[in-house]
């Protein structure tokens, strides 16, 4: 029962022999990046091309184009209802749980279009982790929460499993707080701890890309600070896309920022550029707090 899809090891896909995605072409008028050359040189983990999204008959995203660079944090900002979460939920096709939602266009993940019909969603979602707005620990112990993805996707011995659970909790900056509570329900942790548990759970399965959908909006400031700190550390090993309504957060943790408005990507660029000298008027108005 060995088939080819199964034997691909995490990280085995090399970033080199893939054709580089096309040059970034966002809304006309966008030109200046801090170091455009540097941006172009970075390999894209994921490139979105001409993405439309529909809730039933209502169109929510219009021709989105976006490049997610490897080992960088890309922030998606914009007023509520602008489609930033919708956009993110296309990356692992989680929207498909709901009958009336559909996406059209192209999302190339390591070169392969994930919106194509034959995509292996189980493997895709193993390679792309997701953190949700509300902490979502599974109704099981802390240990089993972390072990969930490991057990499901990999064959591991007992000792390997507990080693990896411990490792994931350490990388999730939660180990010290929960090492004596591994057998307690995950739901018994505090909100901030629950969210870090979810992050640790996602990284335990060794994803390549982590999607975070407003991970701090339900968390107190102390918990938020811890998660932001964690993001900085995770950047070295993972590619992260962060949806946030908190502009300061985007400015603090991200390398690149995309500004969404009414389902369109208005501006995309290096975070410093977006926050310091935005090109588009709408971006400037949003950044300076004149609307949204």
């Amino acid at each position: 029962m060995v088939d080819i899809m199964d034997t691909i090891e995490p990280g085995a896909e090399s970033a080199v022999d893939r054709p580089l995605p096309p040059r970034l072409e966002v809304t006309p008028g966008v030109a200046s990046y801090d170091t455009p050359a540097q941006f172009d040189a970075l390999p894209s983990k994921l490139s979105v091309h001409d993405l439309d999204f529909f809730y039933g008959k209502e169109q929510a995203l219009f021709a989105n184009d976006l490049e997610i660079k490897e080992h960088r944090v890309t922030a998606i900002i914009g007023p509520s209802g602008c489609g930033k979460s919708t956009h993110l939920r296309c990356y692992n096709r989680i929207y498909e749980l709901y009958r009336d939602q559909k996406a059209m266009g192209e999302i190339a993940f390591d070169g392969a279009n994930i919106l194509a019909p034959g995509t292996d969603l189980l493997s895709l979602r193993r390679r792309i982790g997701m953190i949700f707005q509300k902490p979502s620990p599974f109704p099981m112990t802390v240990f089993d929460n972390i072990a969930y993805g490991l057990r499901m996707h990999f064959k591991l011995s007992k000792s390997e499993l507990s080693e990896r659970v411990e490792d994931a909790l350490k990388r999730g900056a939660l180990w010290e707080e929960v090492k004596n509570k591994l057998n307690e329900p995950g739901l018994a942790l505090s909100g901030g701890q629950q969210q870090r548990l979810c992050i640790a759970r996602a990284i335990a399965a060794e994803p390549e890309l982590i999607l975070m959908d407003e991970p701090c909006s339900a968390i107190d400031p102390v918990g938020t600070a811890k998660i932001e700190e964690l993001l900085q550390e995770l950047k070295s090993s993972y590619t992260i896309v962060l949806v946030t309504h908190n502009m300061q957060q985007a400015a603090r943790v991200s390398d690149y920022t995309a500004f969404f408005f009414e389902g369109r990507i208005i501006e995309f660029g290096a975070t410093t550029q977006i926050f310091e000298k935005p090109v588009q008027r709408q971006t400037e108005e949003y950044i300076t707090g004149r609307f949204g």
Partner: peptide, 11 residues
């Protein structure tokens, strides 16, 4: 959200 998290893990 809990179910989505489950599917999001590739279940």
């Amino acid at each position: 959200v809990v179910k989505e998290a489950g599917y999001g893990m590739g279940s």
